[in-house]
Computed example of a mutant assay.
Amino acid sequence: MQRPRSRRLHRKPQALEWINADSDRSALLVEAIRTLEAGYGGEFSGFVDFAPAEYRFNGEQSGGYVILSARNTGSVRAHVQLIPGDWKDFELKVSADISDLVLLISENHLTNFDFENAKSQEEFGEAVEAAVNDTSSERKERLKNANPEPKKEWRKVAVYVRNPDVVAEVLHRAKGDCEKCGERAPFVKRSDGKPYLEVHHKIQLSDGGDDTVENAVALCPNCHRKEHFG
């Protein structure tokens, strides 16, 4: 199991020893830390040298919010400060319980980090990866019946829910070469070894452009930036 990227763990030998001793037992703690870590940048966020391991999140503006305390059973106790003097306790037993914790944090505005937006980006990336692993004929069959007008979902702002098959099919068409300058993709992705290109809409979705293969092009990062800022 990959250890959490959390600050100061190497300075907390008891916590580090507990995490390394049993990866199954510490898995839920690590997953919860990774989920919340992006939303908290406070100076005092990090591990506390208790055994079992404990991690405290400290918001940049409003102080301490969340304390995650590991159990030897593998569960995690979440102690959440909603407002000064008002705390709520969660017992995390499975991964799904982390979603309830994130919902509590978001609903009470405990951090200005948009967990929903981060989640939507992650889900879209996973959807694109799944579409890439399908055959071109499978994607084209779905694209025949796909609505070219992208669906909107209202969160904090309106975001366009892009069709992952469009991205996958454009990347398949490009075969690793930038469709603007003709050069090979500048590198391959560490995650899957595929050439890295970015899919750009010729007419932006926000300007009424369709989310279709015909309205999209695979670009190297330089050409993509040039399309936006050149």
Rank of each mutant, 00 (worst) to 15 (best):
H10R: 14
W18D: 03
D22N: 15
R25S: 04
L29P: 07
A32D: 01
A32L: 03
I33A: 02
T35I: 04
A38V: 11
G39M: 03
G42V: 05
V48C: 03
F50D: 13
R56G: 11
F57A: 09
F57C: 06
G59P: 05
I83W: 02
P84R: 12
G85L: 08
W87D: 15
L92V: 07
D97Y: 11
I98F: 07
I98R: 08
I105S: 03
S106L: 03
N108Q: 11
N108T: 10
N112M: 05
E116G: 10
E116R: 06
A118D: 15
E123Q: 14
V128G: 06
A131R: 05
V132M: 14
N133D: 14
D134Y: 05
N145V: 08
K156C: 01
V157L: 06
N163E: 12
V170K: 07
E179I: 01
K189D: 13
D192C: 08
K194H: 07
E198D: 14
K202V: 13
Q204G: 07
G208C: 06
G208A: 02
D210F: 14
V213P: 09
N215Y: 14
C220T: 03
H224E: 09
H224M: 05
H228F: 10
F229K: 08
G230F: 00
G230Q: 07
